[in-house]
Design a protein around this nucleic acid. Structure first.
Lengths: 335, 335
DNA sequence: AAAAGGCTCGAAAACGTTTTCGAATAGCTA
DNA sequence: TAGCTATTCGAAAACGTTTTCGAGCCTTTT
């Protein structure tokens, strides 16, 4: 391994001069700086990040806390897309990313301990059980954190704009003339609450009374449960003219039931999804859905986190809402 | 930050004693060891991994090289599933994982340089362009590596058994009486070569002549191209009775064309996929497909890598094939 | 010509750990 | 009691880097 010392001997200067030259300090003459850089290049020098971070107390490493509670964690495109953009946003700023988990080998540690042990400069938290005490410990710690799709008062958060999403969906559906609109929603999380509140308020604003029988709970990313709810809706005497699904993937479950009944989308019943995953735009008829901008969300989360890391003083908790886009497919019929 | 020193002062012993006690060295009496552990617990001590790895030259950190050439990298379930299992297998052995990429901030570096800079103890390489010189540099370096779905002679590799996959698919299809079987395959990679070689040899073994017109190239995870190929197959005078797709997701493209022609699966035409993604088992009719065991692949890759890291001497390059499983759905008709 | 100021550079300490090696003590044997 | 071994511990060096502070020199100012 070639170290600073090798370069300093090669160039006949001191350790500190080499260090300063390579780090662009300007109390080194242009000539020596160049000479040092050339030598570093020639000898194939790479700084030792462990030594560096031991000294500077920075690692240029950010943790990502991603727990797949439903075992569909990264399998969900919303999260895999976000992870990719977190990764590339971090890299463009010179940060690497490391997964944070609860256990390292036999040693059981909390998320906070893990992040601290690894010396993460900050952590992006997403897709976890936010009521978990371990998560709360991390958020309340001295380590900078940014949460995604959940708001704590102590740290910045980036939210997919579920209010806008459901509002756009509702307005669109109603504008197409639908009045009996069913909603299948996910498990009771803050995301779900936002979406339903938005749906209700949009109804109210448009002067529509909504039938509580047309609201059913299922789970995100669970086509079976959505299929069940769909069946119940179709069994109603006055069945809805449109069904809103908790997400695109869940819609597939509903689709099976609809086709099994010999019904056609959108002629016999309209449907609308959420997420805008690749599949939704491949299906025929093309699914009408609200595309969450997971890429932007990941990017902003990292930006905010890095701001907080590098300028802790002038960074106050912030809540940023990222709107998506209604993809008008072919699954909502004009009545 | 509480350090070894704090504990040593608290306990009235030396630095080294504390270190040895916490690391379970046995030249420390049981009593002092216990006293030290208690103090560490009480003071909330966490070792500083930077200092530790500076000294030991180990980081307990393994890199993951995952490039999304097709922009569908992690969006592909095969890879996201593998990533998750890599993550959990690594964690269970006490290793963290870090993504390796080419650029850190402005500084452009090769994969090898990045891995070395971060001090990765080893790297799992998957889903990349294996002919990339940067990848080759990494494999040939002193850093232990394990590749997935590609074989170099210098390092161990874990392969999804594409020979078995295509063999099982072909045998199954033929056993159902199909004789005009079309194949849409992915871009020309070693994976594709294996699958096609397996298909051809299975045909030969079964004494079947295969019509070269029934073989077309598309791309993995690209429903549009598969749709195109499907159209061409359906336009043939003597169209195939079964189409084998490069992957489940691509099948969706073909499905659209088939339905557009008013044909029904499997009554009018049989189809079969590859991968066994969640979607495939949700679709109705349920897709017949070969489920690659991405979870097992990730797990074994990590195991082999860690063996190589911890016992470099007795670890010789090994090629491990992981078989999957034919999921008999409802899309292949008995002729 | 002396003082002041700006450029370059190096010595040395420090970050928190692990590890070697020798010292001290205790227990045992003869 | 003398000598020997086993046990337990500590001093100190080392890992590779960054950073502070002062020294030396050269240029400019007064």
């Amino acid at each position: 391994m070639v170290t600073l010392k090798d370069i300093s001997e090669y160039c006949g200067v001191s350790n500190s001069t080499v260090s300063k030259a390579l780090n662009g300090q300007k109390d080194i003459s242009k000539q020596t700086a160049q000479r040092v850089r050339d030598a570093a290049q020639k000898l194939g020098y790479l700084p030792n990040s462990a030594a560096r971070s031991l000294k500077t107390n920075k690692t240029l490493n950010i943790g990502v806390l991603f727990v797949d509670k439903t075992s569909s964690g990264l399998r969900h495109e919303y999260f895999s897309g976000m992870l990719e953009s977190i990764k590339s946003a971090a890299e463009s700023k010179g940060y690497d990313i490391t997964f944070i988990s609860r256990n390292l080998g036999e040693r059981q540690m909390s998320f906070y301990e893990h992040a601290k042990y690894r010396g993460c400069d900050g952590v992006v938290i997403a897709s976890v059980d936010f009521s978990n005490p371990d998560v709360i410990e991390l958020v309340n710690s001295e380590i900078p954190t940014v949460t995604v799709d959940y708001v704590y008062d102590r740290c910045s958060s980036v939210l997919s704009d579920n209010l806008d999403g459901m509002k756009q969906i509702a307005e669109y559906v109603f504008s197409k003339g639908h009045r009996r609109v069913a909603v299948i929603h996910g498990e009771n999380t803050s995301v779900t609450q936002k979406r339903m509140a938005s749906f209700r308020s949009t109804c109210k604003r448009l002067g529509l009374i909504l039938d509580e029988k047309l609201i059913k709970e299922a789970r995100y990313h669970d086509p079976k449960l959505s299929a069940l709810a769909t069946r119940e809706f179709l069994d109603l005497d006055d069945r809805p003219t449109c069904i809103i699904y908790p997400d695109d993937f869940s819609f597939i479950g509903g689709k099976n039931i609809i086709e099994q009944r010999g019904l056609k989308v959108p002629d016999d019943i309209s449907v609308i999804g959420y997420d805008g995953i690749l599949l939704s735009q491949i299906l025929r008829p093309k699914l009408t859905t609200y595309k969450q901008n997971s890429v932007e969300i990941g990017k902003i989360a990292v930006q905010k986190l890095i701001e907080q890391i590098e300028e802790p003083s002038l960074s106050i908790p912030e809540i940023i809402s990222v709107t998506g886009k209604l993809l008008k497919g072919e699954t909502v019929k004009e009545l």
